[in-house]
């Protein structure tokens, strides 16, 4: 993947910016311009809260090329409180074992680096919602 492709989706990676359908109010992430619910055009930006719960998760030991140094790591599908499912890594789970239904929140972390020039790619991960003191 090249720099431009990461640059194009920086709003999604850094801030979970998706879309809301002006016709049926469906919240959409990732953005896709055509509402999956009603099929009409949906290009209005929508900022997701970043809060949700774990729909499912697993830990990888055999990572694809480019991710070997991170292994083992845990990935999840997170159901955002606005509805959509999003796929991402879980982080800060050394303090709390993941489980289905666990409340999580979005944080920005390094996803990896790319190429000989070592370009760093940042984006969303999710961590357990910490108990407030």
């Amino acid at each position: 993947m090249e720099i431009t492709s990461h640059w194009r989706i920086k709003k999604q990676r850094y801030a979970l910016v998706g879309e809301v359908c002006p016709h049926c109010s469906a919240k959409i992430f990732p953005p896709r311009d055509i509402c999956p619910e009603c099929g009409d055009e949906a290009k209005d930006h929508y900022q997701f809260s970043g809060r949700g719960e774990v729909y499912s998760y697993t830990t990888l030991y055999n990572a694809p090329a480019g991710y070997e140094e991170q292994a083992p790591y845990t990935v999840a599908m997170v159901q955002l409180e606005e509805g959509p499912l999003v796929t991402a890594q879980l982080t800060d789970i050394d303090v709390k074992e993941p489980e289905v239904g666990m409340p999580v929140e979005m944080v920005t972390r390094k996803l990896g680096s790319e190429g000989d020039r070592g370009i760093l790619i940042y984006g969303y991960k999710f961590r357990p919602v910490l108990e407030t003191a």
Binding site: I9, Q12, N62, V75, T87, I121, G123
Partner: peptide, 9 residues
């Protein structure tokens, strides 16, 4: 863009 980039298999 939305699965593989997160290190999925």
């Amino acid at each position: 863009d939305y699965e593989s980039i997160h290190g999925l298999t």
